[in-house]
């Protein structure tokens, strides 16, 4: 087990390095330069001589490959660079935000799983029924909703009109409800669809017919033999959706002024704080990869067929 986790962690390294390279190259072609981005805070153009000295001091005149090597060495020690704006280590800025981001992502995913999976299950057991039809219409609608618009409407209804919940900010669970709902709706819709399709797949499998021929009640067939096999298929969607969720969170965090990573990313983009932008993106990617590693490990725990191949 430990070896498996270790192997998966090692397998993440090339991906992270690849992402770091892409992001690094992307921000190296930025019009203007690091130094001017650093110094240009609206007080007019910089003295070219000062700029040249700055560039040399920051090592910006070295070739791209040298700079990338330096950047990677930095990353390996956990150093994400220093924020242009605040002069703080980016790692610390990111650390301050990651808790809020995790809270929101987990709340949204929990909400999506809690409703979406049972809904898909129920719909699959009664294909063509009214519940099934409504659930699938709801699911395709949920996938078509712009999250920030849904958030805006929720904000208007529950915060402005009914005044049940705060309209934005970070605090107790009451602050969490609206952003989590807004962010959770599309994974909910997707999970409902995936679960329904998986259950329909499994329920026609031979071993389910065997289970019925054993004289089991339909409830027992479903809970013992269908559920676990179907959830295995759903698990992949949960893992992949976490990535999309982290991306979409940017908009929802901005809308509700939620102090998460996404908001840090957007603020940093507007302030042209490139190290902070790179750092937030890398951490978001790392988070996504870790979640998918956990999904892989969960697979090994649930599915004996994979355990054999891995050891």
């Amino acid at each position: 087990m430990l070896r498996l986790i270790l192997a998966r962690l090692l397998a993440m390294i090339p991906t992270i390095a690849g992402v770091a390279l892409i992001i690094f190259v992307l921000f190296s072609v930025i019009p203007g330069s690091f130094a001017s981005a650093l110094m240009d805070d609206g007080r007019g153009a910089m003295d070219p001589e000062v700029a040249a000295r700055m560039r040399a001091a920051l090592g910006l005149d070295d070739p791209l490959i040298v700079r990338f090597g330096r950047y990677m060495r930095q990353l390996m020690t956990g150093d994400l660079g220093t924020s242009f704006r605040t002069g703080e280590p980016v790692a610390r800025l990111v650390g301050q935000r990651i808790g809020a981001s995790l809270e929101l992502a987990l709340a949204a995913m929990g909400f999506a799983m809690l409703i979406g999976i049972p809904l898909g299950f129920y719909a699959a057991l009664r294909p063509g029924s009214l519940v099934d039809t409504l659930a699938m219409i709801g699911a395709v609608s949920g996938l078509s909703l712009p999250k920030f618009w849904l958030g805006l409407m929720l904000m208007y209804l529950f915060a402005v009109h009914l005044q049940w919940l705060p309209s934005f900010g970070y605090g107790g669970w009451r602050h969490l409800v609206l952003p989590a709902l807004a962010l959770g709706v599309s994974p909910l819709a997707l999970l409902a669809r995936t679960t329904r399709a998986s259950v329909l797949d499994v329920i026609n499998a031979d071993f389910v017919r065997t289970a019925r021929s054993k004289g089991m009640s339909e409830t027992r067939v479903v809970t013992w033999h269908v559920a676990r096999n179907a959830l295995l298929l759903v698990l992949t969607t949960v893992g992949l959706q976490f990535g999309a969720l982290m991306g979409q969170a940017v908009v929802v965090e901005k809308l509700f002024s939620w102090p998460g990573l996404g908001n840090l990313l957007v603020e940093s983009v507007f302030q042209r704080d490139i190290p902070a932008v790179q750092g937030s993106i890398l951490v978001l990617v790392l988070f996504f990869l870790v979640i998918n590693m956990l999904v892989d490990i969960a697979y090994v725990l649930i599915d004996p067929r994979i355990a054999v191949q891995a050891s």
């Binding site: 690849g18 992402v19 992001i23 940017v250 990313l265 932008v277 978001l284």
Partner: peptide, 24 residues
């Protein structure tokens, strides 16, 4: 395949956002 797998790890909205940050 390697390139696709790397891109798959970056949420597409985040990647688009980074490009917008560079291009304006």
């Amino acid at each position: 395949s390697a390139f696709t797998n790397i891109l798959l790890a970056i949420p597409s909205l985040i990647f688009a956002l980074a490009i917008m940050a560079v291009l304006g």
